[in-house]
Design a protein around this nucleic acid. Structure first.
Lengths: 83, 83
DNA sequence: TTGCTTTATGATCTGCAGACCATTAAATCG
DNA sequence: CGATTTAATGGTCTGCAGATCATAAAGCAA
């Protein structure tokens, strides 16, 4: 599971994908993440104003994580930056 | 540039890092992203309620992108999922 | 240290996310 | 098909993000 996300829609798709793979209903995910089923529905359909913390709540519940990467390089070497 | 992000703080750090690498002031980034300097400041300091669209605006302006990945595997093979 | 640039803070106001309830629509299955 | 599980919609209310302006606090030169 590794999904590029440049829009809220991409994020929604990634979350839905992960949820389905784990065979969870939105309600089940709601229970384990503390995010309402109605909210999950909106997010999976690409709600642009979704709050970061909400995304992270869902990521945590789905055992996902987020990475911010350089668009050009598309490098995959994690955690090497120090500046 | 490739930063793991599990919290709004991580996101803020990644954005600040990228901005500094490109030697942009918050104000310069504000101009080119359409996000206010004050808002950028808050985000870089880990504001949890930041909206997804705002993050994407900044990512676009900084030539960054986001990836949602499986926490356990840490796989790097992008875009292979179809379900 | 003075002065400029950059970043952080503070206040007000508007708009919308998310909690929460109920209900409808859709998908799934016997 | 009808019954049931799952997903989407709709409404109200509260809280907070972000726009916008102004200003304070840092940083960083000369």
């Amino acid at each position: 599971m590794n999904q590029l996300a440049r829009t809220p829609n991409d994020v929604g798709n990634a979350l839905r994908l992960a949820r389905k793979k784990q065979k969870l209903s939105q309600q089940a995910l709601a229970t384990r993440s503390g995010v309402w089923q109605e909210t999950i529905s909106k997010i999976e359909n690409g709600s642009p104003g979704t709050r970061l913390e909400t995304i992270f709540d869902l990521c945590a519940a789905l055992n996902l994580e987020m990475a911010i990467t350089d668009r050009s390089t598309g490098s995959t070497d994690f955690l090497e930056d120090t500046l």
